[in-house]
Design a protein around this nucleic acid. Structure first.
Lengths: 228, 228
DNA sequence: GTCTATAATCGGATAGAC
DNA sequence: GTCTATCCGATTATAGAC
């Protein structure tokens, strides 16, 4: 995972990202460390999602996690390292959802499974999903290596599948990238714009039934829109 | 326009947002004021788009505009007021694009015109569009009044049109809000994720021809996906 | 491993000379 | 109307006692 990240100053090689978290001292109580790291990561996810990287402060994160600020800097040496740890979590989840595209040779099934998985990811991890979008909006200073390597390869491979489906008459003659941009944008929207959706829903967040209806409509629209 | 805004502390009524910009002194040279405000707004748009509200600094904005930092605070009393002025511009553009939905009684034409206008907006004003998305992602602290009033009314009226088209057998039985969320997300993507798209395009931004092809595919996918 | 105290810097905003 | 100098609270990060 570390190979995807570079430090925010842009000058680092993939290798030096090493461990963002200090190694545990011998004979430490692992439970305390695990709990403090968990609380800090959870608080960091909230604050980074609400305020963005620049607007987030380590003091606010430490306060929300219920640990002294100096403790935050003990577990995560810099604000940057803490942010990286948060982004790693959602990258893992993103890759897991991506795998769901490959469960079927039929484009309708593959697309339905992938769109559904991405919708579920936005619903289950809205804060992490928002951080992911914000990272991309800022020009991906932390995940450029991921875009250059894993994502580029992933898209290229799926473009081959799409071309095969087009040749087989199963899909319209579309550009696969444009399709993926639409899928990414639409599914992320259910994390990014949850507040706007709540406002337009009479002030209440979407309940599970409304979300499931939305998921079905999103899948149906895209699948019907690209199949021949 | 001012009635859409509230100050970021959340406690303000629409009335007190008054003039974010100082009134010109009598006998001032309007050209200097106009040029300084223009340079500051342009620089602010760049910095807010790159760093977010919290990450942007007035020093960086003043430096990019080529004016002393104290001058920024002369023209725009607070960072908040400068941000509000930037958001006002994109709100105006958003409303102009929204009007293009109402040019036809046929859903295919209305949707094509609106999606095309939103795509063109993202292409023509990518920085302002990104700020708009970031504002919504943060929970719309500055444009909540717009969401509560103008946007709520706009969506409600278009939902009526969509229901009419469904009843006439021209559209599938869809939820209009889910359709609009998809349109908003997909079109914004061409501003928000321009860097990611460039990476997947061999490092080069989309040229005009590629953008026009994407626009046609987005329109076709959505229109074909929702028409009966 | 924890946390109080503090260093060093940066941030928004202003005073007041020109 | 402009801009240098500066205030002062906030911010990241660390030192060092416990």
């Amino acid at each position: 995972m570390d190979q995807f990240f570079r430090s925010r100053d842009g000058g680092a090689s993939p290798l030096d990202s090493a461990r963002a978290v200090r190694p545990a001292a011998r004979k430490a109580r692992p439970a305390i460390r695990a709990e403090n790291e968990r609380a800090l990561l959870e608080a960091a996810e909230q604050v980074f999602a609400e305020e963005g990287f620049g607007g987030a402060t380590t003091a606010a994160i430490a306060r929300r996690a219920g640990v002294p600020k100096a403790n935050l800097h003990y577990y995560f040496v810099t604000k940057d390292a803490l942010y990286r740890a948060v982004v790693e979590r959602v990258l893992t989840a993103w890759l897991a959802a991506a795998a769901s595209f490959d469960g079927s040779d039929d484009p309708r099934e593959a697309l339905a499974a992938y769109i559904g998985a991405k919708m579920d990811l936005a619903r289950a991890m809205p804060l992490a999903s928002r951080i992911w979008s914000a990272e991309i909006m800022r020009g991906a200073p932390m995940i450029q290596d991921f875009l250059d390597t894993t994502l580029t390869d992933w898209v290229a491979a799926r473009e081959t599948s799409v071309r095969r489906w087009i040749a087989a008459g199963k899909l319209k003659p579309i550009d696969a990238k444009v399709l993926f941009y639409m899928i990414w944008a639409t599914t992320q929207q259910y994390a990014n714009a949850a507040h706007e959706m709540a406002t337009l829903n009479g002030g209440r967040p979407l309940d599970d039934a409304a979300f499931e209806r939305a998921k079905r409509q999103v899948i149906a629209t895209i699948v019907d829109g690209v199949t021949a």
